[in-house]
Design a protein around this nucleic acid. Structure first.
Lengths: 261, 261
DNA sequence: CAGTGGTCTAGACCACACT
DNA sequence: GTGTGGTCTAGACCACTGC
């Protein structure tokens, strides 16, 4: 019932603070910000229910409609999930039917359900110093410790995806090849439960490339097979980059599906 | 002021029609459907303003809030564009700052503004009979007339994109290489103004491929340069497929950018 | 049944664009 | 000032879930 900030006061403060730019922000945006803070602080964990709209309305001293609009936006950002009659829940990469939300590679025939789960194989997992390039992507300093993982995903025992990924060392202290191998389920679900890091959105840059010898061997490819190169930066709350990932996808049996709206 | 259907009656009819499935659809969804019909019928043309929320509320005999929610959804589908203080407008591919909404290829350095507009070159444009594959994609019958266009897009005079595209013959009667070459602006804008076809959404399948000899020559590529193959089906209102397009993108200086939410 | 989110309304007021 | 979309409220009622 205690709330750190009366949104009305917040609005007044914001108005005073900046005189040139009006900096007007509607109440529901401020409420959205407060809910986001609570999510980031881990007040409600992935998979849990947040308080009901009415409770939140009382807590923030606004109408239910205003809370509703704030939650609507968070839900369309995929940070919350509304379930009629049950409540509003913190989104999670685990145990939903929206698993592998960020993986857009699908088989040419059938769909992901037809195909079944991927076989994962960790090729390598070690700590090292960030190169300038990796430091830039992860907003670290050159030389900071990063965790580097290389793995192969197979479908129906056909190696299909080779991934190299880099994680900042500090938040992922204690992550090892063993723990990665032991965990069944999406890697991003492991990040949530074991390290409290929830990936919220990502940007990808896609190119067509020819694999080098090592890559060709790991994917057991014939020569001259082009691959899709997918470079992803994944972000947690507050636009903090938390993962750099370079995927190499076989696209003779699969394709990268994208919906343009 | 005349409206063809009272939404209350529509709801009653819907409830009667199907007894097994409740088929409950909220009022604002029905209003959304009615507005969509008007858009499809061309009652309001791309770029024009639609009636104000209050006018529509009177016309459909609902509250302004209900119209508002209908328009909200259409706006987030990019079918309408709201402009505070001015009105609500039918979205268009022409003359917006959201031009080339469906083109996700961007230069590795700088952005699209840095790069300037593409140079277009129509290589070929002819009418022929639809193959089974093309007929399937465009929901036509095999043998129906389709228009086939091949063009090259260059940036800074470097050929970067080779596109083959197929259009159903009937809606695009009268489209020629000359008219394509003469028109300055996005192709989808020409489709709107000249043929009344507005592309609303699209699906893309992306692969890495090696170009054949013809493609290599048209793009002036060295041997063994892999390309991004982008197969797009674009839809107009009511999910009607209206274009099949196969693009081949150079990705040594550009990349396909995708945001995952 | 109570509790949750979902819909709909009516009215007041604010921010913005044009004239 | 007038008209547009944008915000906020309060209250009524509906649909869904689970006890």
């Amino acid at each position: 019932m205690n709330h750190p900030l009366n949104p009305i006061d917040a609005q007044a403060a914001a108005s005073e603070a900046s005189l040139n730019t009006p900096a007007f922000s509607p109440l529901y945006q401020q409420i959205k910000g407060l809910i986001l803070q609570s999510l980031q602080a881990g007040e409600w964990k992935p998979g849990e229910a947040i308080p009901s709209e009415i409770e939140l309305a009382v807590r923030y001293r606004v109408s239910q409609g205003t809370v509703r609009k704030a939650i609507d936006e968070l839900a369309s950002d995929h940070l919350l999930i509304r379930k009629q009659g049950k409540g509003t829940f913190v989104a999670t990469h685990a145990e939903q039917h929206v698993q592998y939300r960020f993986l857009k590679l699908v088989p040419d025939q059938g769909d992901q359900n037809t195909e079944g789960p991927a076989q994962r194989h960790i090729v390598d997992c070690k700590r090292l110093r960030a190169t300038a390039e990796i430091a830039r992507a992860l907003a670290l300093r050159s030389g900071d410790t990063v965790l580097q993982v290389r793995r192969v995903l197979s479908f129906s025992n056909v190696p299909t995806i080779l991934e190299d990924l880099w994680l900042p060392g500090a938040p992922f202290r204690g992550l090892t090849a063993e723990r990665l191998s032991a965990y069944h389920g999406p890697m991003y679900a492991l990040f949530e439960t074991e390290f409290g890091v929830r990936m919220v959105r990502a940007d990808e840059k896609i190119r067509a490339v020819l694999p080098d010898k090592t890559q060709r061997e790991l994917l057991q490819l014939p020569a001259h097979t082009p691959l899709l190169s997918v470079e992803r930066v994944a972000y947690t709350y507050k636009n903090t980059p938390m993962e750099l990932r370079r995927g190499f996808y076989r696209t003779d049996t699969h394709h990268y599906r994208n919906a343009l709206n």
